[in-house]
Amino acid sequence: MSVAGTKWEVRRVETTRRLEWCALELTRDRGFDGWTMDDLAAAADVSRRTVFNYFDAKADLVLGPEHELPEETVAAFVAGGPTGRIFDDLVHIASEALQEKGADPELMLLRRDVMRSDPRAIAIAHQRFEVITDDAIEMILQREGEQYGAHRARLLVQLLITIVDSVLERSDVDLARPLPDLIDDAVGDARAVLNS
């Protein structure tokens, strides 16, 4: 990549983070419906056009962009990979998705706090989690077969969501620890609890 390309990428990442951070602060202070894209542009010191060049919707700013798994990741999972152990494979996918998003611990914590306190953000997050859960259940049933059971698959996905939430709480305590280490710790604790 050229120096100009590198500078552009750094600026893009910085602007994305600033827009998300400002949107989360506005939501925390005013509520999801208490601010406009013009308010965000002013808070982030960018033009309204810049906001829409980076994000299509307010929900993407507050909750993060919706994430679709690459087809090759889904195909590998359905085929029984990457480890051959269903829960470990789900953890692997979740870990990659979190790391792909850039997993800025401070931004993740602010996002979690907003999602826990703002009723509109909670409702939108719930809708997104339902879609993610349904997609994951479908992947699990494709891999394991219908006899695995939708209820069992849902429980597995809910356990994974709980572990991700635990990772966020752990990062709140130690922002310096790498995300994969926090995930390993949370999974280890979940295994210990389930085996006790």
Rank of each mutant, 00 (worst) to 15 (best):
T6N: 02
W8N: 12
W8C: 05
E9K: 14
R11F: 03
R12E: 10
V13E: 14
R17M: 13
R18I: 06
L19S: 02
L19W: 02
E20R: 15
A23M: 03
G31L: 12
F32W: 14
D33H: 12
W35K: 01
T36I: 04
D38Y: 07
D38I: 13
A42I: 12
A43I: 07
R48K: 11
R49Q: 14
N53K: 09
Y54T: 06
D56F: 09
A57M: 05
K58H: 06
P65R: 15
H67K: 07
T73V: 12
A76W: 00
F77L: 09
G80D: 08
I86C: 02
F87D: 08
F87H: 07
D88C: 01
D89H: 07
L90K: 06
A94Q: 11
L98C: 00
L98S: 03
E100D: 12
G102P: 07
M108E: 14
D113M: 15
V114Y: 08
R116Y: 09
R120M: 12
A121D: 10
A123G: 08
A125E: 07
V131Y: 03
V131G: 05
D135A: 15
A136S: 14
Q142C: 09
Q142N: 10
G145P: 02
G145V: 03
Y148H: 14
Y148C: 04
A150C: 00
A150R: 13
R152K: 12
A153C: 03
L156E: 15
L156G: 11
L159Q: 13
L160G: 06
I163F: 00
I163G: 00
I163H: 00
R170W: 06
S171I: 11
S171H: 13
D174I: 10
L175I: 10
R177I: 10
R177H: 01
R177P: 00
P178W: 02
P180L: 11
D181C: 02
I183N: 04
D185P: 01
D185I: 10
V187I: 05
G188Q: 14
G188Y: 13
A190Y: 10
V193T: 09
